[in-house]
């Protein structure tokens, strides 16, 4: 915190996509976030880490409009936003995945990914009822985009399988696909690798890097696997008990005494 106050990446000036300033969020008497400030540059991978209950997921929920902070401002795409609904956030290009998989279990992989395109589909009820002309074209155009995502994530074989029947690792991948189908500007990943084995983690890391490099998508991710976080991210923000305790490049954060204390505990004997 002392030395790493929003350290810019060396050499180049970066455009700020999301700027969070002194955000506080409380549920009754529980203070989930207090005066948290950080920013996310366009095109970077930003990790949010911290011990359990640090307020990481609450932070993501604030960003995509699911929780409304009592205090603080959020500036997204040069625009300060007030109370925002998840629908509005989604239509402004924020999409996310969940810590506990939140797929639509009764639907096939393809349909799940197609739901990611819903905001891009505009045809009214009557056209859809006929499934003809513009409505049919719209389905086909969006199907093509969904198929690109399926191709990218290498899940062609499970296209028509109900996601409830898929193993955990694949479900996580389908969920990423659903978020990607919306072609987001800002992608929020809540523990994309939780509960995966090493091989699945490697696959997922590759996808995250590819998304960032090929599509230029800005990514904010929460993850507990420190190896993954340090390798993937450009910058890391560390939360503990709802406060920001460090912010900077992986190396800076790794060296930060406050972070080490938060993760390993502080000895009070000396």
């Amino acid at each position: 915190m002392i030395e790493a106050e929003s350290a810019p990446i060396q050499g180049e000036h970066k455009e700020v996509l999301l700027d969070i300033a002194e955000v506080s969020l409380a549920f009754g008497g529980v203070q989930a976030l207090s005066d948290v400030s950080f920013d996310i540059y366009k095109g970077e991978i930003r990790a949010i880490i911290g011990p359990n209950g640090a307020g990481k997921s609450s932070m993501l929920n604030v960003i995509n409009g699911f929780y409304h902070p009592q205090k603080g401002t959020i500036k997204y795409k040069e625009e300060v936003r007030k109370k925002m609904s998840p629908h509005k956030a989604a239509s402004q290009g924020i999409s996310r995945t969940f810590q506990n998989i939140a797929l639509f279990k009764g639907m096939t992989t393809l349909d799940n990914i197609m739901t990611g395109r819903i905001l891009k589909m505009r045809r009214g009820l009557l056209w859809q009822a006929l499934y003809w002309g513009p409505a049919r074209n719209e389905e086909i155009i969006n199907r093509e985009i969904a198929e690109q995502v399926i191709d990218f994530l290498e899940i062609e074989a499970i296209r028509k399988t109900p996601v409830g029947k898929l193993p955990y690792g694949l479900q996580k991948r389908v969920e990423l696909g659903r978020a990607l189908a919306a072609k987001p500007d800002l992608l929020l990943l809540d523990e994309p690798m939780a509960g995966m084995n090493v091989e699945e983690k490697e696959d997922m890391c590759r996808f995250i890097i590819d998304v960032n490099e090929e599509f230029g998508t800005t990514i904010a991710l929460i993850e507990h696997d420190m190896g993954v976080v340090m390798d993937l991210s450009d910058r890391v923000v560390v939360l503990n008990y709802g406060r920001k305790i460090a912010d900077g490049t992986p190396d800076q954060v790794r060296a930060n005494q406050g972070v080490i204390d938060a993760y390993l505990g502080v000895s009070h004997s000396n």
Partner: peptide, 11 residues
């Protein structure tokens, strides 16, 4: 199937 996720997708 999951109304919260639906909302966050933009439904």
């Amino acid at each position: 199937d999951m109304d919260i996720a639906a909302e966050i997708i933009g439904i």
